[in-house]
Every structure is written in C-alpha cells, then in structure tokens.
C-alpha cells in the first residue's frame, strides 16, 4: 500500500510542482506573489471545458485553445494591472492579485455556475499493474507532462535569451535595464508563461477534482507551500517541494487522516518558514536598511 500511496502522491505532486514553478517564475522576475494564480488556471480550464463540452471541439483543440487563452490572460493581467503597480508598495501588489482572485472566481461563477462539472481526460484511463501497485495511464501522462514542462521551463530560464534576461532582472533590474533588457516585456512574458503552467496543471487535475470556480484553491495553497520550500527563488526547489508535498500529503492522508490534509500542509508551511524563513533551498536574504 505504501508504494500505491507514493505513486498517487508523485502524480498529484508533479501538478503542484508545475504550478509552483509558475509562481516562482513571476516572483523571481517581478517580486510579486500571484495569489490569483490558481484562479487564473481555473478560468483557463473553464475555457477548455467550454470549447470541449459546448462547442464540441476535440480534446486537443480545446486544450490548445485554453493554453493560448492562458498565455494571453497572463500577459493581459500584467499589462492592465500589475505593470501599473510596479512601483507601488508590496501590499498594493498583493491586494491587486487578491482582487483578481475574487474577480476570476466571481466571473467564472457568473458564467458557468457553481456546481462541479466533469472534465475529460487526455486518454481513456486504463490501469497498469506493477505487482500490487496500480498506476492509471492518466497518472503516467500527468507525471510525464509535468516533468516535460518543468524541464522546458528550466531550460528556458537557463539557456535562452529571454531566460537570461529574466535572470538578469532578478539579480539587478536597474542594471538589466541599462544593458538594454526590455523589463516590461520580460515581465509580461513571465506572467504569460506562469499562467500557462497553471492552466496546464488545472486541465490535468480537473478530471479528478471536478471543475468548479473553487477547484484550484487546494492546489494553489499546495503550490504556495512548494514554492516556500524553495524559498520562492529556486525553480528546482519548487519542483522538489511540489513532489515532496504530493507524497507527504498522500502518506499523511492514508496513514493518519484524509480530512486534515490542508491543515497538515499549512502546518508544514508555517514550520518550514519558522525554521528557515528563506525556505529550505532558498538563499539567505539580507534585509537592506
């Protein structure tokens, strides 16, 4: 049973990891924690639902359309709201993302209603047996897709021009701007990419959680937890954190209590932050006077 729990934990943990990487990408470049990340992912997933169920598009077309929507949505949210607040106090930026959280949840509820909807899977779920352990084909696809996305995000950040620009901005925005980096464009790009990552996680987890305006709330808090493990500054840290939380939570749910999972996650967040305020893999931060 242990291996079963581990497999389930890794499958769901990879989704947390992808969402967390989205959060970290934005934080690393623009120092904003996007509290609306989960709701933006929820909204994009609803677009896929709309295309698939109401317009009868094929699954892959619906997913692609929703992904494109997510890219535009992330970019638009940055340009319409967050770009205006780049010099505002941190609290204003937090409030702005919280306001977006409420807006997306409200608009989704107004359009589609609050009851849970079923969402299609990429393939027909079939069972693969490894001894006593059962693995669903959908779990394998989820895990593979997430690993691929994580690898792509990492490669992009590490080896491409725009990734280099992101790194430069996260080290010193002023110097990056002097070197000719278009800071606004890079911010917009990281918002778009981050929203895409969230949306893919949303579409992969929607078949299990059922689609509703609140369905990403639990995923989002776990993604925050995962990002905290990496100190919000490390992409591999967030990935490890996501997988770790998936597994820990799955073990906790199976061996101790399935009802107190969120409480467990919150306690872990608070404990990690108490012991290492910069996260387990995060850099030591020194406060400037």
């Amino acid at each position: 049973m242990f291996w079963q729990t581990l497999v389930d934990g890794l499958a769901v943990g990879s989704l947390y990891a992808v969402t967390a990487i989205g959060l970290v990408l934005i934080y690393k470049t623009s120092n904003v924690v996007n509290f609306a990340q989960g709701e933006m992912a929820m909204f994009s997933t609803f677009i896929a639902y709309q295309a698939f169920t109401h317009w009868a598009w094929p699954y892959w077309a619906a997913v692609l359309a929703a992904s494109a929507f997510a890219l535009v949505l992330g970019w638009a949210v940055y340009w319409l709201f967050l770009s205006r607040l780049s010099r505002a106090p941190l609290l204003s930026q937090i409030i702005a993302t919280l306001a977006l959280f409420l807006l997306f949840r409200g608009v989704a509820g107004a359009i589609w209603g609050n009851q849970p909807f079923s969402f299609p899977t990429a393939v027909q779920p079939t069972v693969v047996r490894f001894g006593p352990t059962l693995i669903l084909s959908t779990q394998i696809i989820t895990f593979a897709a997430c690993l691929l996305l994580m690898a792509l995000a990492y490669a992009l950040f590490r080896y491409t021009r725009v990734g280099l620009a992101m790194q430069a901005i996260s080290q010193n925005m002023f110097a990056a701007r002097l070197m000719g980096v278009s800071v606004g464009r890079v911010y917009g790009f990281s918002w778009a990419l981050s929203t895409l990552l969230g949306a893919v996680a949303g579409m992969l987890i929607a078949p299990t959680l059922f689609l509703s305006p609140t369905f990403m709330e639990g995923v989002a808090i776990r993604a925050f937890a995962a990002a905290v493990v990496g100190g919000f500054a490390s992409l591999p840290g967030a990935a490890v954190g996501g997988l770790l939380f998936g597994v820990l939570e799955s073990l906790f749910g199976f061996y101790i209590s399935p009802a107190f999972k969120t409480t467990f996650v919150s306690l872990v967040i608070i404990a990690v932050l108490y012991v290492r305020p910069g996260g387990l893999f995060g850099p030591r931060t020194v406060k400037k006077v």
């Binding site: 941190l90 925050f224 905290v228 009802a259 999972k261 608070i270």
Partner: peptide, 26 residues
C-alpha cells in the same frame, strides 16, 4: 504570530493564508 516574527511581506501572506484555510477544515 511567532513565525511571523521572522517573516515579512509575501511569505507572511502565504503563511497566514494557510492558517486561514486550515481553520474551517479543522
């Protein structure tokens, strides 16, 4: 508030949000 002593800004927001989600569940 004890962990909050060592946190500020975004990290504190995340920690307190976790607390806020945990209470109704408990």
């Amino acid at each position: 508030g004890l962990p909050a002593v060592r946190l500020s800004g975004n990290f504190l927001a995340v920690a307190t949000m976790g607390f806020g989600l945990a209470v109704p569940e408990v």
